[in-house]
Amino acid sequence: MPQALVLAVTADGALRPVTAELLAAAARVGDPAAVLVCDPAERDTLVTALGAAGATTVLVAAPPAGAPLLTGELAALTAAVTATGDVSAVLIESTFDGRELAGRLAVRLDSGVLAESTDVELLDGQVVVTQPAFGGAYSVRWTTTRGVPVITWRGNSIEDTAAPADAPAVVELTVEAPAPAPTVLEEHHEPVGDRPELTAASVVVSGGRGVGSAEKFTVVEQLADTVGGAVGASRAAVDAGFYPAQFQVGQTGTSVSPQVYIALGISGAIQHRAGMQTSKTIVAVNKDPDAPIFEIADFGVVGDLFTVAPQLTEALAER
């Protein structure tokens, strides 16, 4: 069976949940294998975790010296495809970094990018993905006609898990950053505290301009915390300084597709919908009965978010 390669996503020496989902998706189209770029000190723990998540092989590389931006991952992916030989697909999380890597890799492999995929299957031996278009107004299935397909995967799309592999085979890769590479001078991560990450959360509660101020965003946070969800924000809320830019959901922010998306004081502009319309269940609270968010809400409430949201929080807390 050909191998389906997944770029492992890690943070602070641990796998991020999307890695297991990528391996589960990979298992549908090949023997799941992981490409891991990590500090040698974290390697053993991560290899074991990748095995538990389904990777039968782990291709590992140490990051190149000099903090180059993304070039280490790109070199590792390229080397992994060469080392593996028979590859059915490469799966990469559809983040800004992931999409950049996918683009470069597809050019190198002279293949195509199957972007923003939410489903993957083998159809007559061909890898076929499903992609929502125009904020979910359409769903189109895509395939490639040459080369190894490079799939960018939208996290939280499927719930399968891959069968665990006890002792994954480990393949060492040596990678160097090619010049001229951009270098990372400093990095800032927005602390999320105990909340899950936006792309991994099964519940996302987002606030919009209707929340009115940074202080009042606690209404959004309290609801999110009651259900173990992540907090998101519309661009208007971000631009008004109510919430940090890293939490923007939508076309130019993060795309999410949680089990439940709760929109508080968000009108539902097309650019916002583009980043959340594939959520399984959508609840919206808005004062304006004509707000476009109601067109896509499974449960809409015309009302004041400051009375509805706390009541919802309380009712869910008592559950």
């Binding site: 439940v260 269940t281 609840v283 609270v285 009965p289 109601f294 896509i296 809400a297 499974d298 449960f299 809409g300 409430v301 015309v302 009302g303 004041d304 009375t307 509805v308 949201a309 706390p310 009541q311 919802l312 929080t313 309380e314 009712a315 869910l316 559950r319």
Partner: peptide, 19 residues
């Protein structure tokens, strides 16, 4: 999909819907 107008109990109704 349906939309209700808050009569004072919409928060509780939304919770019931989700549960």
């Amino acid at each position: 999909g349906h939309t209700i107008t808050d009569d004072g109990s919409a928060g509780a109704q939304a919770a019931r819907y989700l549960i």
